[in-house]
Design a protein around this nucleic acid. Structure first.
Lengths: 189, 189
DNA sequence: GTCTATACGAAGATAGAC
DNA sequence: GTCTATCTTCGTATAGAC
């Protein structure tokens, strides 16, 4: 199946991006890790590296959007935050602080112009919107739901950066605890 | 003066890092922007690029640490947060969302091993500690001061990432507003 | 301290055979 | 769809003159 190799390359690219960033996500690395054949790169991705990175960013953005929607569908917002931080803590531990967020990596792509940066922006917007919509029934003002959603996404992404840099789970643990407390106070029913 | 060229290269490297990341911070770029002479690179930085990036990271980390200490010395914590977000908003606007945090960039350096990543971790730790110490007199528990400090640093760094990616000041504005409200509630006197 | 020249390797991309 | 070979560009780094 052709789309099998193709999809494997996209998912591998997202993994390398999360570990080492966009620039270090070379074809050689993706080929080596995915087992995909060298000769078919430009068959699957005629747009070259830019296309691969952009598709990997969209894939990662949608994957996370689904996870967020899923968590919010079966839990209240506080439990969803707790689940999200638990997932991140597990990944940081498992990767020995080697893995971060592929969408953050894409947002820092220095290429010009960069479809990856745009895709990252769209992903962040979607995540914020989904979270804000879930919070809206629980708070007094819709604008409060939006600002809480933005704070949650921003602080978790930032905490992952700090945790990786300091090689410590503490930043993310502290942020998760503060967010839970803040939400508990802000939610009316 | 020899240290003049050297210092100019360090500061230029920090600027390029904040705009385009560590990997894209090439000697060619630093030379072009700083006006430093090509031939003296390895005279000033015998450790090559790794040394330049590491020194630029330390420089940026200490520069920001001073700014934080300064703001906390002459203002209360809430005013300091407001000043910090104003500074970031101005930079984002002025750079048309082209500039982020050089320490975040350093923390994502894929090089192995990376003195820049370590320097970034130390910078984040220092900033958190300074902020926590300033908050401690205002809250009931020292641990609360620490978790608030971590939330503040993480969420601002994260919001800068989101603002750049979405090319909008809104994420940072929302985060700043939420942080102010949270601090107002957490501070006892 | 600074110059020029150059070695070396990595990576993206293309061409043409099978 | 996949292979091999090759081109080109770029970036780090070194050597040796001035």
């Amino acid at each position: 199946m052709e789309s099998d190799t193709r999809q494997r390359m996209i998912e591998t690219a997202a993994v390398v991006m999360r570990e080492r960033g966009v620039e270090a996500t070379s074809f050689s690395e993706v080929i080596a890790r995915s087992g995909a054949p060298r000769g078919s790169i430009y068959h699957h991705f005629p747009g070259g590296k830019a296309q691969l990175i952009e598709e990997a960013t969209r894939y990662a953005g949608e994957y996370t959007a689904s996870s967020i929607a899923n968590a919010l569908w079966q839990d209240d917002p506080i439990a969803a935050i707790r689940a999200a931080s638990a997932t991140w803590l597990k990944l940081l531990r498992k990767s020995d602080f080697g893995a971060g967020c592929p969408v953050v990596a894409a947002s820092l792509d220095p290429t010009q112009p960069s479809g990856a940066r745009e895709a990252a922006g769209e992903a962040f917007s979607r995540w914020q919107r989904a979270l804000a919509e879930a919070l809206e029934p629980h708070v007094l003002e819709p604008e409060r739901a939006r600002s809480l959603a933005t704070l949650i996404i921003s602080s978790i992404e930032g905490a992952v950066v700090l945790s990786r840099a300091t090689r410590s789970l503490t930043p993310l643990e502290r942020v998760a605890a503060e967010l839970e407390g803040l939400l508990a106070g802000a939610i009316t029913r």
